[in-house]
Design a protein around this nucleic acid. Structure first.
Lengths: 237, 237
DNA sequence: CCAAAGCAAGAGCAGTGCTCTCGATTGTGT
DNA sequence: ACACAATCGAGAGCACTGCTCTTGCTTTGG
């Protein structure tokens, strides 16, 4: 869009990027709690008040980092998906799950920013919503392809959940049966439960070989949403 | 133990409790990030330096609150379990899951303290470990009882996971088969994934009727660890 | 070419975690 | 019962934080 702006505008985007980069460095080093505007400015050789020309508050800087983190995670997941797009849906699913896990383990503090407790004002700004949805949409896409290919396993829903299930299916994937959407949303949350526990140390004296444990759990999730490994004989419940 | 200590010691424990109570109040009102030692002292009518006689640092106050939160959550889960101890294991499981969810929704900031991103020094102090294990042990107990009664469904483990599964089973529940322990740990993490997403707002424009959705997901988890509802005809895989 | 906008710098305010010192109070051993 | 030691509250103070406001300088656009 505005690539060929004036020199002033280009300088502005450069400084903005430099601020975010330095903030990310401090975030990785010390965590979100100790991220200091003044320290960022100091490291960049400017005075702290100048930084407010680019971000009106510390919380706005953090939300910018949050959006970037969502995008970075989404790109990592999509890149992993692209590499296995020819394989079976179950393998695609597990590959995306493992990409999420590896991204999180490599940047625990950035991950904490988006899937830990919300640190700014407890209510996530609505601007983060589209970026946050990328991984979820990718997982929906995998299941959609598998469903259009050959169908997925079906679960009976209890009566009291049927209206809500229809609602969710309409919003998220009108071409998928509500039963599938329900287990999909559950699996989505459960995936991040597994990653959370590993990143935040809840598995510390419990699970040792966390890589193979996670791969297995992700495979179980794939199976739960109706995707089956080709070699695994289990075709139905 | 030391109930009948001197008046000095009793006053100390009283002041300590008052500090923690006020800190909990501020935590519920503003979140962990804005919890201030000086504000706590101010509200209690003492000067900030006096507070350091009771907690050597802000982080130590927070860890005390963390341990209390783990204990409070454990008690809530155990109380819910006690109320349904006569019913089927699957119902017990779901009851405990719902107790965890309700505890978390009633105290989102306290929940964030223990299952959100670790705020103090990123490495959880080892003193919190026993308190953190209570909910997990309770869930293991439910499955253990069900297993000793009539056995639970069995899953085949991939070869590369067998050694780790044996390790985990030895440490956590030597009387349970490794296959069960593996899915149990996974279900434990996934339960908190569901609660996390709801408490932290990830379900906001996605799931509307979150109570019934959660109940259903918890039931699926119960089924996954091998517990079956009596009326549901599915007895095996 | 000149006014308007964008910018960096500095001072300053209120608040924070934490340390140190100083009396006063309390508990304990002889 | 007395003296010593430990404990406690209060105050001052340090280094730091987020943020605001004013002051000049530079760039930009009409």
């Amino acid at each position: 869009m505005s690539t060929a702006q004036g020199a002033r505008a280009r300088a502005r985007t450069e400084v903005t990027a430099a601020i975010k980069d330095e903030a990310r460095r401090q975030l990785a080093a010390e965590g979100a709690a100790k991220l200091s505007l003044r320290a960022v400015a100091r490291e960049l050789g400017m005075v702290s008040s100048a930084l407010y020309r680019y971000f009106p508050s510390r919380d706005e800087l953090l939300t910018a980092l949050i959006i970037d983190a969502y995008d970075s995670l989404g790109e990592a997941a999509e890149a992993a998906y692209a590499k296995v797009s020819g394989e079976s849906p179950a393998r695609q699913w597990v590959a995306v799950c493992e990409a999420v896990r590896e991204w999180a383990l490599a940047r625990p503090h950035e991950y904490a920013l988006i899937y830990g407790s919300p640190v700014p004002g407890y209510t996530a700004p609505s601007t983060t919503v589209p970026a946050a949805a990328r991984v979820g949409l990718l997982m929906i896409g995998i299941v959609r392809d598998a469903y259009q290919d050959k169908g997925v396993a079906q679960w009976k829903l209890p009566a009291e959940l049927r209206p809500e299930a229809r609602r969710m299916a309409e919003d998220l994937a009108p071409d998928l049966p509500p039963e599938v959407v329900v287990v999909l949303i559950g699996a989505w949350a459960q995936l991040f439960g597994l990653v959370n526990f590993e990143v935040f140390g809840q598995f510390n004296r419990v699970v040792e070989d966390r890589g193979t444990f996670f791969r297995h759990a992700a495979g179980q999730l794939a199976h739960h949403v109706g995707l089956v490994y080709p070699q695994s004989g289990a075709k139905e419940h």
